[in-house]
């Protein structure tokens, strides 16, 4: 028996909006600790990892580990039927071939019930090592989204150059070039507006904007985004250090005492040099 009740159903809507254009089919792994999903995009170039802790749910019951394989486009269509302030309840029986979704209106006068067929997915699961990254940039998520969108007008790739005092995002193409430089901010009254850089050494790497624009669809989930990267390492070293991680924390929207209940992490390798 699996049952998870999320008072802020809009969080689930935002998560699906952040992944459905990147990944078509994926499995939710449900355990007593929470729900998680890991999948590569269809071209196997980027990887998305979602985690929701059990204590982020108002009610959470998972008697035994379950894998719920499903088409995310279908799930997204059904989740869109929930109002933003609805409570969403996910239910699954042991060994069933479907899950039930209940949408409870805030005044509890209306309950909608939908079922989704499950799929048996034979997906490749990648082991992500626990890596220390040399450069970490924390910045407003809407600023990152805007930069990626604007630079897509100029070129297909963004070059991120990071030094202690700031970070520069640049792109070049047939029509010309463009760049945006963000300085590290002093301690701010509004932490959501701050730009924070933590680095061991300077870095300059290029990434495909097509994927970063997909990742930026998670912007409504979090006011800040974290980019973690490491400079190119010499040949023979493990390649994994080159991967960029774009992370959005998932918080409940408790205005007085917000807490992190999970995350979305996207992984992308730098573009291959021309």
């Amino acid at each position: 028996m699996f049952e998870a009740r999320l008072i802020q159903g809009s969080i689930l809507k935002k998560i699906l909006d952040a992944i459905k254009d990147l990944v078509t089919d994926a499995s939710w792994d449900c355990s007593p600790n929470g729900m998680s999903l890991q999948a590569m995009d269809t071209s196997h170039v980027s990887l998305v990892s979602v985690s929701l802790n059990s204590d982020g749910f108002d009610k959470y019951r998972c008697d035994r580990n379950l894998t719920l394989g499903m088409n995310l486009i279908s799930l997204s269509k059904i989740i869109k039927c929930a109002a933003n302030d609805d409570t969403i309840i996910i239910k699954a029986g042991d060994g069933g071939d479907k899950i039930t979704l209940l949408f409870e209106a805030q005044n509890e006068s209306e309950v909608a019930e939908y079922e989704i067929k499950l799929m048996n997915l034979d997906s490749e699961y990648l082991g992500i090592p626990d890596t220390t990254y040399n450069v970490t940039i924390k910045m407003p998520s809407n600023k990152f989204q805007r930069i990626c969108r604007d630079l897509s007008q100029i070129g297909d790739a963004v070059t991120i150059s990071c030094a202690k005092d700031g970070v520069r995002f640049g792109a070049a193409g047939d029509l010309g070039s463009g760049s945006i430089r963000l300085a590290q901010t002093a301690t701010s009254d509004k932490p959501e507006d701050s730009v924070t850089i933590s680095m061991q050494e300077a870095l300059c790497q290029s990434f495909a904007l097509k994927y970063l624009n997909h990742f930026a669809k998670a912007t409504p989930l979090s006011a800040q985004v974290t980019l973690s990267m490491s400079p190119d390492v010499p040949l023979g070293e493990p390649l994994l250090f080159n991967v960029c991680v774009v992370e959005y924390n998932i918080s409940d929207n408790d205005d007085e005492n917000p807490s992190t209940i999970g995350f979305i992490r996207y992984y992308l390798a730098p573009k291959i040099d021309d």
Binding site: V45, S46, L126, Y211, A269
Partner: peptide, 14 residues
């Protein structure tokens, strides 16, 4: 179109 490394070359398959 930007040419990209495949992530399966980076992470171990389990």
């Amino acid at each position: 179109e930007v040419e990209q490394h495949f992530l399966s070359n980076y992470f171990s398959t389990s």
